[in-house]
């Protein structure tokens, strides 16, 4: 039995360069911030010249001068993608903020204003979650007459339900928690409890909700624009670019759709990952992983 006295050492597992949840989140946050800054600053610095048509440089494949190539009117696709992304970002940001506002109002109302309101909100949530997203989006955008305003309202109206549900559940749970009930017995007012006990729990949920809604809003904006119910064709939104390039794909100009599509995908993926990691961090069960 000479081999029995070996020591258990699990540290070889941790010696691998495996990042923990916080480090991953910081990394993802840095990537998302860099992308965001890059697009905003790039879009701002962009000269209109690049967006102009230039018939001497029509339909060029990607090169150093035109990394994303040029289209059938000789417009630089990199510049167009950048501009498109800034439009998408703006629309996405507005839509997700409005959406979070809806979610907060309806979630709070459901949790605090009695059974009838709760029933009504829950019913609405179920309806919206049950209907296919894109159909509702198109209907609302169409009803609002298309354009930027229509897209923002349509995206905002369709994206609040899951967050509203989270907020409703959180507030209901907090309201019946021992420490909130006890706070009343210690003589604290309802307002004091709302700001001191409830708010610190809701703010992280709202922030994560915002970050998670953002990529969805961008994606759905692009989708309905692509289908022709969204932003006007005169705006260089990513959805417009993709929709236009469809007509030229058969001529072998693959770069027209690939690069704008990819840049949209990278952006969406980065914010999605950021939101997911933040969500796991505010959950005590997974915070220390």
């Amino acid at each position: 039995m000479s081999y029995t006295d070996t020591t258990i050492n699990q540290s070889h597992i941790s010696q691998l360069p495996r990042l923990n949840r916080r480090q991953i989140t910081v990394l993802v946050m840095a990537i998302a911030a860099a992308l965001l800054l890059g697009v905003v600053i790039g879009g701002f610095l962009l000269s209109n010249e690049k967006l102009m048509t230039n018939f001497e440089e029509r339909s060029l494949s990607p090169s150093i001068e035109h990394p994303f190539g040029t289209d059938w009117l000789g417009r630089d696709m990199f510049a167009r993608s950048l501009k498109g992304l800034t439009v998408s970002l703006g629309v996405g940001m507005l839509a997700s903020t409005v959406s979070v506002f809806f979610a907060l109002t309806l979630g709070l109302a459901a949790a605090t204003m009695g059974r009838t309101v709760d029933g009504a909100v829950t019913w609405l949530v179920d309806i919206f979650l049950g209907l296919p997203h894109i159909v509702v989006l198109i209907l609302i955008a169409f009803a609002m007459g298309g354009g930027t305003r229509g897209v923002i309202i349509a995206v905002a109206i369709t994206h609040w339900p899951s967050l509203a549900r989270v907020i409703r559940a959180e507030v209901l749970q907090l309201r019946t928690s021992e420490y909130v009930q006890l706070s009343r017995r210690l003589g604290r007012s309802r307002w004091w409890i709302a700001t001191r006990h409830l708010l610190p729990h809701l703010v992280p949920q709202l922030l994560v909700g915002l970050v998670l809604l953002f990529p969805h809003a961008i994606l759905h904006e692009a989708a309905i624009t692509f289908l022709g119910f969204g932003l006007s064709p005169h705006q260089p939104a990513v959805g417009v670019i993709l929709s236009e390039s469809m007509r030229h794909l058969s001529t072998g100009q693959w770069w027209l759709a690939l690069f704008p599509g990819l840049s949209l995908l990278v952006m969406v993926r980065a914010f999605d990952a950021l939101g997911d990691n933040l969500r796991l961090l505010i959950d005590p069960h997974t915070a220390q992983e």
Binding site: T4, T7, I8, Q10
Partner: peptide, 19 residues
């Protein structure tokens, strides 16, 4: 959990209790 570090010896039926 993942963030735990462990050292020492654990023997089960006189044999090292590896992960």
């Amino acid at each position: 959990p993942n963030n735990a570090r462990i050292s020492g010896t654990m023997l089960y039926v006189n044999e090292d209790l590896t992960p």
